[in-house]
Simulated scan of single mutants.
Amino acid sequence: MKGILSGFLVVVHLMVISQTSPTDFLFPAPPNQKELTSQKLWSTQYYIHQFQSGGKIPIVYADGKPSGLFADTCDFCMASLEGTAFVKDSSGNSTIINFAKSGDSSFVNCRACKRFAASKLNVESWGRTLWSKSQGFGDGVKNYRLVPFRTIAVDKEVIPYGTVLYIPAARGKKILLPDGEEAVHDGYFFAGDTGGAIKKNHIDIFTGIYEGNPFPEVIKSNENKTVDAFIITDQTIVDALAGLHLKKAF
């Protein structure tokens, strides 16, 4: 899969109409941090899975229509776990697929993929995934799109959708944007997605096509290792990140 990554990057640049840039991460630290509501959160990360169409498992849309794309067991299940995938067909064209819903029947047993054989996650549900076509980096909840290094998946009962969080431990960390540019993160994140495994004080940070860990002090994938996060009330910042995530921004 790594051998086709550079080709996918080129396609991504052509497909993504609105692209994050270093100047998107220049908000100042909140001057009233001590007055803000704080939460203890633990974090994982998710990113876009990329693969070449092949194998015997069909990618089927939520309306029951076949996409004409296929996957092997591990690619299908990884895409289901991450929620979004770039799939390249034999002609070199790429389709962005997004998790739509779980169907009634299973296309594949994800335990058959060695990577997930002993997983404690609800692997069985992944094989029932039905998809929708998407654009950019995929879709979040409501009318939001996913934005690398900004979007977080949340449990809406704990963190309502549309909330902006400031995580001091992420501020000042260098990130590699999808176009290859570097930026320094300002620590702000937008609650624009969710996931079946995201419960209570667990957040999931979206890193686009970047599979490394850009925030090692934050992303520890351990519920016992929490970080401080603050709910932002500055309407200028809230409106800016909300606008960045709205699909109409394409």
Rank of each mutant, 00 (worst) to 15 (best):
I203A: 01
T194I: 03
A191F: 04
P216W: 04
I175D: 08
G172D: 10
D179I: 08
H185I: 03
G192P: 02
V218Y: 02
F189T: 11
F190K: 04
A197F: 07
V218P: 09
H202Y: 05
G180Q: 12
K200R: 15
T207F: 09
I203F: 04
Y188S: 09
S221E: 06
D186V: 06
I209L: 10
N222S: 00
I203E: 07
K200H: 14
P214T: 01
D204M: 07
Y210R: 11
H185N: 03
F215K: 05
K174N: 15
G196Y: 13
G195E: 12
G195L: 08
K200Y: 10
L177M: 03
P178W: 02
D179Y: 10
D193M: 10
G172H: 11
G172F: 14
D193P: 11
N201L: 06
F190V: 03
I175G: 04
L176H: 13
T207M: 10
T194G: 07
E223M: 11
Y210E: 08
G180F: 03
D193T: 06
A197M: 07
H185T: 03
K173P: 00
G195M: 14
H202S: 05
E182T: 15
D186C: 14
F190Y: 15
P178G: 08
T207G: 11
G208M: 07
N213P: 09
V184R: 07
V218M: 07
F215Q: 00
K173N: 15
N201R: 14
T207N: 07
F206R: 13
G187V: 13
K199W: 04
N213T: 13
F190N: 07
I205S: 08
E211I: 14
P216G: 05
A191V: 06
H185L: 03
G196D: 10
D179F: 02
T194M: 00
I198Y: 02
E223I: 00
I198V: 14
F215W: 02
T194P: 10
I198A: 09
E182A: 01
G196C: 11
G192S: 05
E223P: 08
N201K: 06
F190W: 08
P214S: 01
E211R: 14
E217I: 01
E181F: 01
N213E: 01
G212M: 00
K174D: 12
L176W: 05
N213G: 05
I198N: 05
G196K: 12
F189A: 06
P178L: 06
G212C: 01
E211K: 10
I205V: 13
F189S: 15
G187N: 12
K220E: 09
S221F: 03
L176V: 02
A183R: 06
K174F: 00
E182S: 12
E211W: 13
E181G: 05
G172C: 08
L177Y: 01
K173W: 00
E217W: 01
E182L: 14
N201Q: 14
G192A: 11
K173S: 12
L177C: 07
P214F: 04
P216L: 01
N201I: 04
I198M: 04
Y188G: 03
A197N: 13
D179T: 12
L176P: 00
F189Q: 12
K220T: 04
G208E: 02
Y210T: 05
